[in-house]
Write a protein that binds this DNA or RNA. Structure first.
Lengths: 209, 209
DNA sequence: CGAAAAAGTTGAACTAGTTCAAAAAAGAAA
DNA sequence: TTTCTTTTTTGAACTAGTTCAACTTTTTCG
């Protein structure tokens, strides 16, 4: 009786996980049940405890991941040894070092869980096989990569032309859910400014209202 | 006799043009003769005189282009009305506003020829048709977009973490051919600094050797 | 719970990069 | 060639953002 309930709850959790993935995919294109099943088959589930790493600089990034729970950061160390956050990923986001993953070269990036997290992972050879066997996957990742690229291009425009204040406001407007879960240190590192300066910006903005 | 030579020279020019495109594609994947022919069929040739525009802010970007001659810049106007160059494109580079092109929304970007230039263009509906009719095209653009994305991510890392000196050195090392053809104003705008400051950086670097 | 660690605040001194203005040099056009 | 326009250089005054150090507040965890 007890173990039966346990099994049912595990199964319903798995179902919810893959539902999230399906919803994510259907933002980009329609997919049939059978294609979706073939698509998800090679994914495996992994938990990463807070402060644990999914990838460390120097390793080759063997996976592409879809976050179903938690929050992770992707960062690298600059020449002065300072941590710089490239981006964050929470539920419903994809995560990988695309440079290392596609070129099979050692990563300069670290991926670390900021909260206890769960991801669905697929490795490179399995993804390559999906491209061959499920043509819609090729289209899916073409579209997804395009959208990621558009987003990065917009961020590039911000980084080049806007002041720290503007970038901070843009960030909290665009990702209000995310800011709540992050420390100011992390936000500052993402914006490319010192945390002291971010503190001053926040003070100034608080006064203004 | 005269018109015969003229025809032959036109034809050999066309052949060279598509050879360049083929070489470009084969950097990413192998393509059969027949697929390549079907791929190139919807492309058309266009000349853009120096200072002419291929795209103006406000228009919807209807094309994706491959540069076979010349040099173009992609730029936008920031809040202060200053021109900011996102990137350049010379022979063997692709050019479009991917945001406007894929989302069919008005562009914030301008694309202007810095030299008399020539491009091969394909419009959105034709490209969409290619995706359906020539499956390898889906893979081709998936790989191309991935690589562009990796390059942009690397640039993002530079923009966030490096000083103007470092970014300038990186630029001239990475694109020595390009720097020759650009004014310092243009390079400064690409690096996201004032041209006066670039001039000072160049002076400082010249002294050091 | 209490101690230790991490995050956030503040001010002062500094530095990288900007703005403005004026002059010199280089290119384009006629 | 001459003229006009654009690019480049230079200096001085300024500003956005950094660094360092000391302190307060919050979070973590044994």
């Amino acid at each position: 009786m007890f173990s039966g309930l346990w099994l049912i709850s595990i199964l319903s959790y798995l179902r919810a996980m893959f539902e999230l993935l399906r919803k994510n995919i259907e933002k980009h294109l329609a997919i049939s049940d059978s294609d979706f099943e073939r698509f998800t088959a090679p994914f495996y589930h992994r938990k990463i405890a807070k402060k644990q790493f999914l990838l460390r600089a120097g390793q080759i990034c063997k996976f592409e991941g879809f976050v179903i729970k938690g929050c992770l950061r992707v960062y690298y160390l600059d020449e002065q040894g300072q941590e710089r956050i490239l981006y964050f990923a929470i539920e419903d986001w994809w995560i990988t070092d695309i440079d290392s993953f596609t070129n099979n070269t050692p990563s300069i990036l670290n991926i670390e869980a900021l909260e206890d997290s769960e991801v669905l992972l697929i490795t490179q050879p399995y993804k390559e096989a999906l491209y061959e066997q499920v043509p819609v996957v090729e289209k899916l990742f073409r579209i997804m990569t395009q959208k990621t690229h558009v987003a990065l291009q917009r961020r590039m425009i911000s980084a080049l032309g806007k002041t720290a204040d503007e970038r901070y406001l843009e960030f909290i407007t665009k990702y209000p859910q995310l800011e709540q879960r992050l420390t100011q240190l992390q936000v500052a590192s993402y914006l490319g400014i010192s945390h002291e300066f971010l503190s001053k910006i926040r003070k100034k903005l608080a006064k203004q209202r």
